[in-house]
């Protein structure tokens, strides 16, 4: 009589070409075949479903059949490493970079990164943002000395591809056809729904400087050094409306 261990069982589930482990039986006493395949199907279908839910834009760009074939290969090679399925698929961008059949869509890994960042943002901690009328209520010299934190739900992505436009063109209703050129995206969550915002020139530098703890005045200096025509008011309006900035508290690590 064979004892079936969980290593053997799990390897047989992920490898459809492998034999069903010995020691698993039908009610008639014969070795299980299709009954084992129920577990194989349940596992693979649940993982494919999770990928389709987590990467709707990647799916739309690839088409249903291509996406299914790609994710089948992905989930067999990269099964979840944690029971938190909300974060499943974080290895997809790197997988796509090496996935030969999708090489023509060079922007695809960065689109997958947007979709991962949107999910992270959705589940991120709540935080009280700085007041939307910060500019009206704070004297300019005081404002320049202030530090801020990014809200826990904020994510930033910079790409050599027009990822914001590609993402928008694949929503309902669709945005305009993307123009070539790199874009930086700031994902924000004003209340419960994350949204990508296209960052104007220089804004990514400003956001990075704020994130790194620079005072507001210093962050602006760093940005205008790099991008002389940086439009501060436009970027600041975006950050405040999207509730992306939180008060800086020294005791917070």
């Amino acid at each position: 009589m064979s004892n079936v261990g969980q290593l053997e069982f799990s390897e047989a589930i992920l490898d459809p070409t492998s034999e069903v482990p010995m020691g698993l039986s039908n009610p008639d006493g014969r070795p299980a075949q299709k009954r084992f395949d129920v577990y194989r199907n349940n596992v693979i279908l649940s993982l494919l479903d999770a990928m389709a839910t987590g990467f709707p834009v990647v799916k739309k760009l690839l088409g249903d059949d291509f996406f299914r074939a790609m994710t089948l290969e992905f989930v067999r090679a990269n099964p979840p490493s944690s029971p938190l399925m909300m974060h499943f698929g974080t290895a997809l961008p790197n997988f796509l970079e090496g996935f030969e059949p999708a090489q023509k869509l060079g922007f695809l890994p960065d689109i997958a990164r947007i979709e991962i960042a949107m999910r992270e943002s959705y589940h991120a901690a709540d935080a009280e943002p700085v007041s939307g009328d910060l500019l009206q209520t704070t004297p300019p010299d005081q404002l320049m000395e202030m530090q801020f934190k990014l809200a826990p739900s904020v994510r930033m992505l910079r790409s050599r591809w027009p990822i914001y436009s590609i993402w928008l063109a694949n929503q309902e209703p669709a945005g305009p056809t993307p123009e070539p050129g790199g874009q930086a995206v700031l994902i924000t969550r004003p209340e419960f729904d994350p949204w990508p915002n296209l960052l104007p020139a220089g804004a990514a530098t400003l956001v990075m400087a704020i994130e790194n703890g620079a005072t507001f005045g210093n962050a602006i200096e760093q940005t205008t050094e790099k991008v002389p025509h940086f439009d501060l008011s436009q970027t600041l309006a975006l950050l405040l409306q999207a509730k992306a900035l939180c008060p800086f508290k020294k005791e917070t690590p």
Binding site: L7, I13, L47
Partner: peptide, 15 residues
């Protein structure tokens, strides 16, 4: 549902 570092997202049987 987990073995070593893999989580299989299904309720698998045990003897």
């Amino acid at each position: 549902s987990s073995h070593n570092s893999h989580f299989l997202n299904d309720l698998l049987p045990l003897p």
